[in-house]
Simulated assay, not measured.
Amino acid sequence: MARMCRPVHLGEPASEPVPVAGCDVCGALAEQRARAYATGDKSKATDCNVEMRGHSHPKAVRA
């Protein structure tokens, strides 16, 4: 019996996260991502993007 499946519609891939200026963690992840792309390791580059998106930054302290 044939299986009736609905077509899958994928959206555009998310853009890469931009590192926050002055954040050492974001800077290190951006460097790792660049090295991963340079060596063709797209899996590692994706891992860096996921980690950068999930990285939280402390809220600015208001005086």
Rank of each mutant, 00 (worst) to 15 (best):
M1T: 06
A2P: 13
A2D: 11
R3L: 12
M4P: 07
M4I: 04
C5D: 13
R6V: 02
P7R: 03
V8F: 05
V8R: 06
V8D: 02
H9A: 15
H9E: 15
L10Y: 10
L10N: 15
G11I: 00
G11T: 01
G11H: 03
G11Y: 02
E12D: 11
E12H: 07
E12A: 04
E12L: 09
P13L: 04
A14P: 10
A14L: 14
A14D: 10
E16I: 01
E16C: 02
P17Y: 11
P17A: 03
P17F: 13
V18G: 08
V18S: 12
V18R: 11
V18M: 12
P19R: 11
V20E: 11
V20T: 08
A21P: 04
A21T: 13
G22Q: 13
G22W: 12
G22F: 09
G22P: 02
C23N: 13
D24S: 15
D24T: 15
D24L: 14
D24K: 15
V25Y: 01
C26G: 11
C26P: 10
C26L: 10
G27P: 07
G27D: 15
A28V: 10
A28C: 11
L29P: 05
L29K: 01
L29W: 03
A30P: 00
A30K: 08
A30V: 00
E31R: 13
Q32H: 04
Q32L: 07
A34D: 09
A34Y: 01
R35A: 08
R35W: 04
A36N: 10
A36C: 12
A36Q: 10
Y37M: 06
Y37G: 00
A38H: 03
A38G: 04
A38F: 01
T39P: 00
T39N: 00
T39F: 00
G40L: 02
G40E: 01
G40S: 05
G40K: 01
D41E: 13
D41L: 02
D41V: 01
K42S: 08
S43D: 13
S43F: 05
K44I: 08
T46D: 13
T46M: 09
T46K: 12
T46S: 14
D47I: 03
D47G: 12
C48R: 05
C48Y: 04
N49A: 09
V50M: 09
E51G: 08
E51M: 14
M52Y: 03
R53L: 09
G54P: 00
G54A: 14
G54Y: 04
H55F: 03
H55M: 05
H55C: 06
S56A: 11
S56Y: 04
S56R: 10
H57M: 06
H57Y: 02
P58D: 04
P58S: 12
P58M: 04
K59N: 12
K59F: 06
A60G: 13
A60C: 09
V61I: 08
V61W: 13
V61H: 10
A63E: 08
